[in-house]
């Protein structure tokens, strides 16, 4: 595996510091070096790591630690606290519009898991909240994208709105909302084509859809294996579309998933769901504290 020994190393360092009656500057230095490595190897963005280490250092030489009876333990507590804090507190809920339908737009890079998550989310809304969603095939670019969503719709026995690949995604979204109103679908989930955050033309298309349908939620779908670039992607999507939440996919893998931390740090938007497999029932609420531990490999 990629991260052999990481948790052990960190535990070792913590172990050394744990019983100490006095925490020296050298102790703090050694510990922060290990924490830095752990975070970088977990793909947390280097800028985020830098700020994080700075805060830990400040607190580690501060009064709460120095005046504690068990300074070693106190330092470790500081690291875990700060990390959990950074990862975000509680789980958050999915929006409900005052007047139905509630509109959810799925956005993100190519291959992140938008279409699959569209199906999973619809399944979740029906099972957990007794809702009746309409899925919208607004990806007219990727070969067989419509077919993919229609197949998911069939598996779920749920309606899928599509107008083929010649239609304009903005029109597709508009007409879908009208159909949802006519057919009393209380949620509309719009699957959009994957695109690069630097693709101005396609980012503009998303802004137009957004202006037209005024979504209650805009979910940025992010692959948990994403490396350092996650901040660029999340920042740009958030700036241009005012994302309301993040779905982290492919967390059933063995990645540490440090991107989660970076995204939370730069956008301050909650991670709402975790994708835990390819099947339509493999979507889970996101637990920030568990994620924090995973990132450190504990």
């Amino acid at each position: 595996m990629a991260f052999e020994g990481l948790a052990d190393r960190l535990q070792n360092t913590f172990q050394k510091i744990k019983g100490k009656g006095k925490v020296t500057e050298a102790d703090v230095k050694e510990m922060t070096r290990e924490v830095r490595l752990a975070l970088l190897e977990a793909d947390v963005n280097f800028k985020v790591v830098k700020d994080f280490i700075k805060r830990i250092k400040e607190r580690a030489v501060g009064q709460e630690v120095m005046q504690s009876l068990t300074p070693g333990q106190q330092v470790i507590k500081v690291v875990k606290e700060e990390l959990t804090d950074l990862m975000g507190g509680e789980q958050s809920k999915i929006a409900v519009a005052n007047r139905p339908p509630t509109v959810i737009m799925m956005v993100g890079l190519q291959g992140a898991g938008k279409t699959t998550t569209t199906g999973k989310l619809a399944n979740h809304l029906r099972k957990q909240h007794n809702r009746n969603p309409l899925l919208v095939a607004a990806d007219v670019y990727r070969p067989a994208a419509i077919n993919q969503l229609e197949t998911l719709g069939k598996q779920l026995d749920m309606p899928v709105f599509s107008k083929g690949t010649e239609a304009n995604p903005v029109d597709i979204a508009n007409e879908a909302i009208q159909q949802a109103k006519d057919n009393h679908n209380d949620y509309v989930i719009i699957d959009t084509a994957g695109r690069l955050h630097v693709d101005e033309h396609l980012m503009d298309e998303l802004q137009q859809i957004r202006q037209n349908v005024q979504p209650n939620e805009t979910f940025l779908v992010v692959d948990a294996m994403t490396g350092q670039d996650a901040v660029n992607v999340a920042e740009t999507f958030n700036e241009q579309l005012d994302v309301t939440g993040v779905v982290l996919t492919k967390l059933d893998g063995d990645t540490r998933g440090g991107a989660a931390l970076s995204i939370k740090a730069v956008t301050d938007k909650p991670i709402k769901f975790a994708g835990m497999g390819e099947k339509l029932d493999q979507l889970e609420p996101f637990y920030p504290d568990r994620m924090a531990q995973r990132i450190l490999g504990m």
Binding site: M1, A2, F3, E41, A42, D43, L109, G111, D223, M225, T226, G227, Q228, D229, A230, V233, G253, D254, T255, R256, G258, A259
Partner: peptide, 14 residues
């Protein structure tokens, strides 16, 4: 391999 992938790519390759 997706170029946006971080350190997990090494585990993938192995």
């Amino acid at each position: 391999l997706d170029a946006t992938t971080g350190q997990n790519a090494l585990s993938q390759a192995k």
